[in-house]
């Protein structure tokens, strides 16, 4: 893990605004330079641009720096935004609200509240204990991992803003509707007994007096943590994607992940659930599949089920939920993802 040297850390903290302006300008400049630099780099290689290897290498050399640069910038900005939305404040915002509008709020807050799947259980209990309705809690728990800045950044970098926005909208919809449905099913009895017997806790939002300098620190910290953890997956994903780009014939995927294959969407979900990786690794592969004729609906369904439903998370949740509630959760979310997949295939 890389850490910034001490004098560099001190300067941003003293003049945080100046640092933000300078860093923003430097970032934009770098981003503008990227495309010509990647072209020039590939041009110096003793390869035909049109050859298999040439195509694969160009994909790799252009996309890797682009994705990493975008990701660093956005993760930094989100780290600062996250410092305004602690789980405690989110809980205070949601506690005592009735379902419906609260599901929408919970799903939206899921995007900006910092969340790590290792905290899923204490967070779940904290919400329920403070009187956040079960369905609203689920809206949050579905949206938080699925609609996150890493997934959105990668989608933007590899597919453009339209697909990124579409994913944002549909991810939120799945979280809102699935949470609402779970709320309607009155599953409170399927919480583990010790969770139901816990004393009610008041939701108190902690004092928030962070300076801009401290928020900068939060940004640096999340870059170190998230980009530091995720970059090997991105490299691996882009390398596999580059291989697919260079070597797999066009329309190869159309035969079994294309629009006309009705079972492509359910199959994508079934394959996706037991797979456990993060958005970072899966998106570059997905982009390459799409280029080879896979339908967008099946591909998005695959992505969502990989990210939103994972086996390790179920095991963690089993500590607080009875099996029947976990099964309901998986069933409702998977159904939502299926619908998203079919809608996409039909519309595009």
């Amino acid at each position: 893990m890389s850490t910034l040297s001490a004098p560099m850390r001190r300067w941003p903290n003293q003049q945080p605004l100046l640092f933000l302006v300078v860093a923003g300008a430097a970032w934009l400049g770098l981003y503008q330079l990227l495309m010509p630099a990647a072209e020039a780099l590939v041009a110096t290689l003793p390869l035909e641009r049109a050859s298999h290897l040439g195509g694969a290498l160009q994909f790799f050399f252009y996309d890797t720096p682009k994705v990493l640069l975008l990701l660093t910038g956005i993760v930094f900005a989100m780290g600062m935004v996250n410092s305004y939305f602690t789980p405690e404040r989110t809980r205070a915002l949601l506690a005592g609200r009735s379902e419906g509008a609260a599901n929408v709020m919970a799903a939206s807050l899921g995007i900006v509240t910092p969340f790590c799947s290792c905290s899923a259980v204490p967070l779940f209990i904290g919400f329920v204990q403070a009187g956040v309705p079960l369905g609203v809690t689920f809206s949050f728990l579905i949206s938080a991992p699925m609609v996150n800045e890493v997934a959105l950044t990668l989608l933007f970098a590899m597919f453009g803003w339209k697909i990124a926005l579409l994913y944002l909208g549909l991810g939120l919809s799945v979280a809102i509707v699935a949470g609402w449905v779970i709320g309607r099913l009155n599953m409170e009895a399927y919480l583990e007994d010790w969770v139901r017997e816990m004393p009610h806790a008041a939701a108190v939002a902690g004092e928030d007096r962070l300076s801009l300098g401290e928020r900068l620190d939060a940004g640096f910290a999340s870059v170190r943590e998230i980009v530091g953890r995720v970059w090997p997956y991105i490299l691996a994903g882009i390398a596999i994607g580059a291989g697919i780009h260079g070597y797999v014939p066009a329309d190869f995927m159309a035969a079994f992940m294309g629009k006309d294959v009705w079972w492509a969407v359910p199959l994508a979900v079934v394959i996706g659930v037991p797979m456990y990786t993060n958005a970072a690794g899966v998106i570059p592969v997905v982009q390459a599949l799409l280029a080879k004729g896979a339908a967008l609906g099946a591909v998005l369904a695959f992505m969502m089920s990989v990210i939103a439903l994972s086996f390790p998370e179920m095991v963690i949740l089993r500590k607080v939920l009875k099996l029947r509630l976990i099964a309901t959760f998986v069933g409702v979310v998977a159904t939502g993802i299926l619908i998203v997949g079919y809608v996409f295939n039909a519309v595009l």
Partner: peptide, 8 residues
């Protein structure tokens, strides 16, 4: 959770 901590 007994300590009221939600994020670890």
């Amino acid at each position: 959770t007994g300590y009221g901590v939600m994020s670890t």
